[in-house]
């Protein structure tokens, strides 16, 4: 870890100005990822801007019927918030499938979106990694890639985005509000994270110095038919091999609208709107779900140790949609056999 200075901002404007004034600065929220990365010498900011005094901890209703998650609301407070539990249970389930209780108590909602990949090579400074050192090469492609991407990857990077929370947010079409040196703007969730292309060092489309102020959920929460299915190498405290956020609006047995996002398979939460379109107006049956699943993994590519994820993703999609339809799966916290939280 290199030496750094630390200031604590009390307003968004002050934070943004402080950032602009210090080259090599980083915003510090819960610190559950950034501090680890600094200890590992992977992130080397020279100036940290502490955000916890900013008035961005609230979760509040929006006039259009949506819900605003303050950037600094913790993952735990969000998952257990009565409005989230009642109106966006998919999000609550997704958050609780991630990390550990201790981490969720510290981690902020904005920080969750900004956590970096868990690629082994990204974390190990003794190995080349294009995301960490652009141009050094991707070690994972010909190496150990069990937790790596099968969709949307590039020749320069096959890392995945590790967040669970971001997967339901993608399915729910959340909007990310940011403030920066050039003022405020809104970013659709689908446009927030990036695919690696030939700039894998960029995880998202935030401009330099931009600060997330809130994550806004639209009114529609799919609270009647939803599931977040996470498959992983142990029941808790492991990143997803494949996860699926499924949300359905049903009219009897017919699907009015379906949303689907996958985690653990790509450099960003993976949404395939062409596949979702195959749900619209169709009967909520396993046959329909299989067609959708086949569409999602069309063009998927595996490497030496993650090829199984293509088949696993298909099965997980079918299972998640089936669960969302039937809503008879155990939702309690000990529902281990479902591999749910």
């Amino acid at each position: 870890m290199n030496s750094f200075t630390l200031t604590k901002a009390t307003t968004v404007e002050a934070a943004v100005n402080d950032n602009a004034a210090h080259y090599g600065s980083a915003y510090l929220g819960g610190g559950t990822n950034l501090i680890d990365l600094m200890k590992g010498n992977i992130e080397r900011p020279t100036h940290l801007i502490g955000l916890n005094k900013l008035p961005l901890h609230q979760i509040e209703n929006l006039p259009d019927g949506g819900l605003r998650l303050g950037a600094l609301a913790t993952n735990a407070d969000t998952a257990y918030h009565p409005e989230v539990q009642a109106r966006y249970p998919l999000l609550s389930q997704g958050i609780l499938a991630g990390a550990s209780a201790q981490l969720r108590n510290m981690a902020t909602d904005a920080g969750n979106l900004l956590q970096r990949t868990r690629c082994y090579y990204f974390y190990d400074t003794a190995t080349p990694c294009n995301k960490r050192e652009p141009g050094s090469g991707c070690s994972a492609i010909a190496g150990f890639n069990r937790i790596h991407a099968i969709l949307g990857q590039s020749e320069s990077c096959i890392a995945t985005h590790p967040s669970d929370m971001a997967v339901p947010l993608a399915a729910l079409e959340a909007v990310v509000q940011v403030s920066g040196p050039d003022g405020t703007r809104s970013i659709k969730f689908a446009d927030f994270h990036r695919l690696p292309g030939d700039t894998p060092e960029l995880d998202n489309n935030l401009q330099r110095g931009e600060l997330i102020t809130s994550i806004d959920l639209p009114k529609k929460g799919f609270e009647k038919h939803y599931t977040y299915l996470k498959l992983r190498d142990r029941t808790s405290y492991a990143f997803a091999l494949v996860s699926v956020a499924a949300a359905l609006e049903l009219d009897g047995d017919t699907i009015v609208e379906g949303r689907l996002a996958l985690g653990g398979v790509a450099h960003k939460p993976w949404r395939d709107q062409d596949a979702e379109a195959l749900l619209k107006g169709q009967p909520a049956t396993v046959d329909t779900f299989r067609r959708v699943a086949a569409k999602v993994v069309q063009g998927a590519k595996g490497y030496s140790s993650n090829t199984f994820k293509i088949e696993l993703a298909k099965r997980a999609i079918v299972r998640a949609l089936k669960q969302a339809t039937e809503m008879n799966y155990p939702t309690d916290t000990n529902a281990f056999l479902n591999s749910n939280p």
Partner: peptide
């Protein structure tokens, strides 16, 4: 759970 390969 054979479909998903999960074992407990």
């Amino acid at each position: 759970d054979e479909e998903l390969g999960t074992l407990h």
